[in-house]
Computed example of a mutant assay.
Amino acid sequence: MENQIPGGAAVNRYKILWRVFLIGNFGLGAYMFAQAGKKERVKLKTEAPVEVTPTPTPTPTLTPTPATTLTDDEELIFTQPTTRPVIVRQPIPEDQQRELFKWMLEEKRKVKSNNREEKLLIDNEKAILKEFLCSKSIPSV
């Protein structure tokens, strides 16, 4: 039996497969870019627009520079910083704190340090955790 040598280059022989592969990759890339843009647009829509209430504008005491000169149509708007309410949580019981400290100590023991400073830092943290575990009462935060 004689070996048959296929005619033409591999690209020409599988031209249809190459085309399908390239079109599929371009389609996948376009889909991925479209989804990323869609997420950004949804994110912008869900953000609540900041409402600026008109307040009496005090006159600035500094003389404006040419770059910050205001026209007659524009006004300076000063807004008060918004503060978030502080969430007061229930204190964690002492036995749960001790369990948490024990877990943290075990995790610190598992950490492999890369250099001397990191090893000293981990050793110091472990020493603090051991002090908390050996003490009679745990300080509240």
Rank of each mutant, 00 (worst) to 15 (best):
A10V: 14
A10S: 08
V11D: 04
V11H: 07
I16D: 12
L17E: 11
R19W: 07
F21E: 03
F21M: 13
L22Q: 03
L22V: 15
I23D: 01
G24Q: 00
N25S: 07
N25A: 11
F26A: 06
F26G: 02
F26I: 00
F26E: 02
G27I: 06
L28A: 09
G29R: 06
G29H: 02
A30N: 07
F33E: 09
A34V: 06
G37L: 13
G37H: 05
G37A: 05
K38E: 00
K39W: 08
R41N: 02
R41S: 03
R41P: 00
V42R: 02
K43L: 02
L44K: 15
K45T: 13
P49E: 13
E51L: 15
V52D: 05
V52H: 09
T53I: 15
P56C: 07
T57P: 01
T57S: 13
T59E: 11
T61L: 12
T63E: 04
T63V: 05
P64E: 08
T65R: 09
P66Y: 00
A67N: 08
T68Q: 10
L70C: 10
T71R: 14
E75P: 03
L76P: 07
L76F: 10
F78R: 13
Q80H: 09
T83N: 10
R84E: 12
R84G: 07
R84Y: 04
P85R: 15
I87W: 00
P91Y: 03
P91E: 03
I92T: 05
P93K: 14
D95A: 06
D95N: 10
Q96T: 14
E99Q: 15
E99L: 15
K102W: 02
W103E: 13
M104E: 08
